[in-house]
């Protein structure tokens, strides 16, 4: 082995007066900017929210009005005066989809809000309470979570019958258990942070710790999850309605519209009476999911590219 070759002593040019400051930390992650799919999601979601609020004013006919009282026939093809055709009782499909938007979205939104209110209050509460309270609450919640949601819905509807308040309450309570688990986990994660301990050492009360230390940090992940939870609630409510156990006829709702017009697939002149409400739900939930996915995909490493 040859002896190491002599290296030169290299000194970079310098200015005696330049101080070597601490190098800054990594730049903070960039603010979220929607990608193309994100924008598609935002536009479609906003469209449906608009219809949900104003649909009943803009609809060409009433919810149960017959556009062609003289020419009664189910599942008529689209024509002048009924651009999406008519349904099983010869009502205007377009008008019913527009009325249904408010009901489907409204019920789901109210249920999700309820789920969040109950779930977050109890979840954060469990996180800041002692281990004993937390364990009791979590065990009860686990038992609740180990049931298929639709089964719980069926039992409740069987017991007390179906009405809009019952639907909101049922979906709200079922999904509150999911929100409970999530917000408890987020709360627990924040509770072990040094800044929470610093607040405890300072002598801060529980209320300050919850409102000033935990909530501001738990807010963002919970809001992101809200979209996802809303999707599940919409699907749950629609499935119940589809099974005939949710919104009751003659009220229009997307899930029940699919069910009552299911015959169109076999012997209808037009299948739009089934397709329109099904597409309405799918475009709404899918577009919300596109937003959620876009927000959560923002950031993250890609090691496996270099394999």
């Amino acid at each position: 082995m040859s002896a190491p070759v002599h290296h030169p002593h290299v000194v970079a040019p310098f200015d005696e007066n330049v101080s070597f400051d601490e190098l800054p930390d990594a730049p903070p992650s960039q603010a979220y900017r929607p990608t193309l799919t994100g924008w598609i999601g935002i536009i479609i979601t906003c469209f449906w929210l608009f219809i949900a609020v104003f649909g009943s004013f803009l609809a060409p006919y009433g919810e149960n009005a017959l556009p062609f009282p003289d020419d009664y026939a189910e599942f008529q093809s689209p024509k002048e005066g009924a651009s999406l055709g008519t349904d099983v009782e010869d009502r205007d499909v377009l008008s019913r989809v527009m009325y249904g938007a408010g009901r489907t979205i409204g019920i789901s939104f109210a249920a999700t809000l309820l789920a969040y209110f109950v779930g977050v209050v109890l979840g954060i509460g469990a996180a800041v309470s002692g281990p004993r309270v937390d364990m009791v609450m979590s065990r009860i919640n686990d038992a609740f979570l180990s049931l298929p949601t639709i089964m719980l819905g069926l039992v409740v509807v069987a017991a007390v019958g179906s009405s809009i308040p019952v639907l909101i309450l049922t979906a709200g309570m079922i999904y509150a258990s999911v929100v409970f688990r999530l917000s408890r986990a987020i709360g627990m994660e924040i509770m072990v942070m040094d800044y929470v301990e610093a607040a405890k050492v300072r002598g801060e009360g529980r209320w300050w710790i919850i409102t000033r230390e935990i909530w501001p940090n738990a807010r963002m992940p919970l809001i992101t999850d809200f979209g996802l939870r809303l999707i599940y609630v919409i699907l749950f409510i629609s499935s119940l309605s589809f099974l005939g156990l949710g919104v009751q006829p003659p009220q229009a709702d997307w899930g029940s519209m699919v069910r009552e017009n299911l015959g169109a697939l076999q012997y209808g002149e037009s299948q739009l009476a089934v397709i329109a409400p099904a597409v309405a739900i799918a475009t709404l939930t899918v577009s919300i999911n596109l937003i959620v996915d876009d927000v959560s995909a923002h950031g993250g490493g890609k090691l496996s590219k270099r394999m």
């Binding site: 999707i231 589809f242 697939l265 739900i281 799918a282 939930t285 899918v286 596109l290 890609k302």
Partner: peptide
């Protein structure tokens, strides 16, 4: 990850995961 195959599959599954069963059936 990040390939065309991955992106198409991801887009399709993101869409389908949120769609109700009766939409897929239809």
């Amino acid at each position: 990850p990040g390939s065309l195959y991955d992106r198409i599959l991801t887009f399709v599954s993101v869409s389908l995961v949120a769609a109700p069963e009766f939409f897929t059936a239809t």
